[in-house]
Every structure is written in C-alpha cells, then in structure tokens.
Amino acid sequence: MAVLTEEQTMLRDMARDWASNESPVGAWRKIRNANEARGYDPAAYATMAEMGWTGVIIPEAQGGSDFGWLSLGLVVEELGKTLAASPIAASAAAASAILLGGSDAQRDAYLPRIASGELVATLAVDEGPRHDPEAITASVSGGKLTGTKAFVAEGDSAGLFVVAATDGLYLVEAGEGVTVDRRHLVDFRSHAQVTFDGASADKLADGGDGLRDAVLDRAAVLAAAEMLGMAGQSFDTTLAYLKQRVQFGQVLATFQALQHRMANLFTEIELMRSAVEAGLAAIDRGGDTRQAASLAKAKANEVGHLMSRELIQLHGGIGMTDEYDAGFYLKRMRVLEQMWGNTAYHRERFARLSGF
C-alpha cells in the first residue's frame, strides 16, 4: 500500500465521504433508470469540479491543483466503490495528451475548461471491438479529419475529442463534421460511435506513437483504479453477506471452504492494489510507464474478473436479481476489462517489453 501524504489522505477521505453520502449505488440506479445517453448526473459532476477533482492532474497555471496521478487514482477508486458515474477519468486521460504533447496555446485553450468541469474531453482511439492502437485508419488531410471511432467512453457528452490518426493525435471539437451515435453496453454508461467527416483537427505538437502510448497508459491505469475500488467494495459486501446469511442452521461465514475463498480474494485484491498504485506512482515519476501500466491493467483485469464473479456466486440467487446491486458491479467490471486492453493484450505487451 502506498504511503500517503496528509493532503492525499484528506483527499481520499473527502472522496470516500462524498461518494458514500451523496452518490451511493442508489444514485447510480436512478441514472440507469433514466436511460439518458450521457450516463451521469451533471449536477454531481459540477460538485466534483467544485471540490477540485477535475483538475487534480492539471497545473495551477491552467486552473488545476497539480496534485498528481496517485491522488487522482485515490479519487477514482473511491468513486468506483459506489459506481459514481462521471467523465472524470476520461477527461483526465484526454487532458494528459494536451499536457504531454500540446502547445502553450492548446493548453491555455482547453485545460482551464477541463479543470473547471466546464468541458468534458475524451479519447477516441479504437476503431474496432477490441483495443488495438496499431489498427488506426483515421486520417487527416488539409487539417480535416475523417474516420470512425467505436465505443468512445463519454462520447455522448464530450465537447473535445483527442483522436488517434495515422500520423499522431489530434484535437477535434464537437460540432460540424462530428456525428455521435449512442452505443448501448451492459454497464449503461456513455459509449458512443463517433464519426468524423471532414472535421477540423488541430494536431498536438508532439503527436507521435510515444505520446499515444503514454496517454493510453494513463487511461489504462485510471480504469484499473476504478476497478480496484469496485473490487474492494465487492469484497466488503460479500463478506458482510456471508456473516449474516444462515444456511443449514449455520452462518455461512463459519464454513471453512468459504473462509478460504475469501482469504484468497483478500490476498488477490491487495496484490491488485500494489500493482495499481505502482502504476500511478510510475506516472508521477515520469519516464517510461509502459511496463507499470500494463502490469496494473493486467492484474486489475484478472482480479476484477475473479472478484465480480465470486460476488455473484457467493450471493447465490439474490446476486442475479436487478433489485440487488451485485449485477451493477459485474457489468461495469466486464466493460472496464476490455477498455484500453484486456488481460491477454497487457500480458503480451508486458512480456514483449521485458524482452521475452
């Protein structure tokens, strides 16, 4: 477990209290039932912005707090525990592209608006059903971008897209030449197919593959941080259920076989925490983040899949019902597993980077 500063501890506790009291799972259920394309509550996101969470990784010169990626990961983890829906992770990943490769003019134009919560930004990279940043066909000619991006997270409400093209990353504002079509996934969050047809595109100053990989690393680790929060909450919920559920005249938690399963899950989640926090710390240190990011996402995928499956199984029949919250965690976890690379993708990438 990472050693937190006093300020980071306060930030984590603030996020935990707010998520528990102001955005519990019941709040997400209301959003799901409303079935709106944006998939989150704008008022809740405005509150997050007021608390400074939308500007955690943005420099003070552009209206942020420059508090680092580990600090942002703490917030995302706590929001994940209650399934609090927001574009905070998507906007942060998009903001990182501008931070790493943008000009001064691009930074001044967009980062203050992202930090204030006024502007929702997102990455538009993959063009097929699986994460494959090498399979890019979107292209730019004469400052106009043409191509289609599938399953763009927060695409329904985004005002700015960081788009991967054949020759680098481009900034494209929503509007003329940009068509957004809602895609329905099991987690009921915002996922859109975005078509660019001659949309005005502004290339990031440093827009090569190195920048793209660095940005995708940040997106992957933030997804892993959300999965960590969900896995931890799933464990706590399951343990509480086993302690009160009586079967065959005994509390389920007294069965040794179930104790062993829970002990194994606890160990796996702690390993997941170490990998995710190491990934966030690697981003804060700077330099090559590829191995740390792939390790974090691969472990998060593996443990998140296991914990969400056990969450359903150990709750028995009630875990399969919509009236219970377990299904929400399972569905969101399955979507996050695929975002920014599944387990096989990151295992192969880590091995390749390690020289195997």
Score class of each variant (00 low, 15 high):
Phe350Asp: 04
Glu323His: 03
Val221Tyr: 06
Leu145Met: 07
Leu100Gln: 09
Trp28Thr: 07
Val76Trp: 03
Leu258Ile: 13
Ile88Ala: 01
Val120Cys: 06
Thr146Asn: 14
Gln247Cys: 03
Ala205Arg: 12
Pro112Ala: 08
Val25Thr: 14
Ala292Val: 07
Thr137Arg: 13
Thr321Pro: 00
Gly39Ile: 01
Ser141Leu: 11
Asp66Asn: 13
Leu123Glu: 04
Phe235Gln: 10
Asp104Val: 09
Leu271Met: 13
Val180Phe: 05
Gly155Thr: 10
Gly64Val: 04
Leu72Glu: 09
Val186Lys: 13
Ser354Phe: 02
Thr146His: 10
Gly198Glu: 10
Thr54Asn: 15
Lys299Cys: 05
Val172Glu: 05
Val140Gln: 03
Thr122Gly: 09
Ala220Arg: 02
Thr5Met: 08
Asp126Gly: 12
Ala199Phe: 04
Gly155Ile: 08
Thr237Val: 15
Ala275Cys: 11
Met227Asp: 02
Thr321Asn: 01
Ala219Cys: 01
Lys144Ile: 07
Asp325Ser: 10
Leu314Thr: 02
Ala278Lys: 07
Leu271Val: 10
Arg107Glu: 04
Phe255Met: 13
Ser91His: 09
Met230Leu: 15
Gly207Phe: 01
Val25Tyr: 10
Asp322Glu: 13
Val140Thr: 08
Ile57Gly: 01
Gln313Trp: 08
Val3Gly: 01
Glu50His: 05
Leu242Trp: 05
Pro87Lys: 02
Val180Arg: 14
Val140Cys: 07
Gly26Met: 12
Ala46Lys: 13
Ala15Glu: 05
Leu239Ala: 12
Asp108Tyr: 01
Pro129Met: 12
Gln291Cys: 00
Val194Met: 07
Ile283Trp: 05
Leu258Tyr: 14
Leu111Pro: 02
Leu171Ser: 06
Glu226Thr: 13
Pro59Met: 05
Phe356Gly: 05
Asp181Tyr: 06
Arg347Asp: 11
Tyr45Val: 06
Phe356Leu: 13
Ser91Met: 10
Ala109Met: 06
Leu79Pro: 00
Pro59Arg: 04
Ala298Thr: 02
Asn21His: 06
Asp167Val: 09
Ala89Arg: 04
Val221Met: 08
Gly63Ser: 10
Leu265Tyr: 00
Glu173Asp: 15
Arg349Val: 05
Ile88Asp: 01
Ala49Gly: 15
Leu145Pro: 01
Leu11Cys: 05
Arg113Asn: 03
Thr5Ile: 11
Ser294Ala: 15
Lys297His: 08
Asp206Lys: 13
Arg212Val: 11
Leu123His: 09
Ala121His: 05
Gly355Asp: 09
Gly208Met: 03
Glu60Leu: 02
Leu280Pro: 01
Val140Phe: 04
Ile57Tyr: 03
Leu74Phe: 07
Ile58Tyr: 02
Leu211Met: 10
Val76Gln: 04
Ile88Gly: 02
Glu270Gln: 14
Arg32Cys: 11
Met333Trp: 02
Ser103Leu: 04
Arg273Gln: 14
Ser23Met: 09
Leu314Ser: 00
Ser354Trp: 01
Tyr345Arg: 04
Ala37Pro: 01
Arg12Asp: 12
Gly210Leu: 11
Arg182Phe: 12
Leu72Gln: 13
Leu204Ser: 00
Ser96Arg: 12
Thr289Asp: 06
Leu271Phe: 11
Tyr345Pro: 00
Gln233Lys: 15
Val178His: 10
His315Thr: 00
Val163Met: 07
Ala15Cys: 06
Ala223Pro: 00
Glu6Leu: 13
Ala282Glu: 07
Lys203Gly: 00
Val75Phe: 07
Ala326Gly: 05
Leu222Asp: 05
Gln259Lys: 15
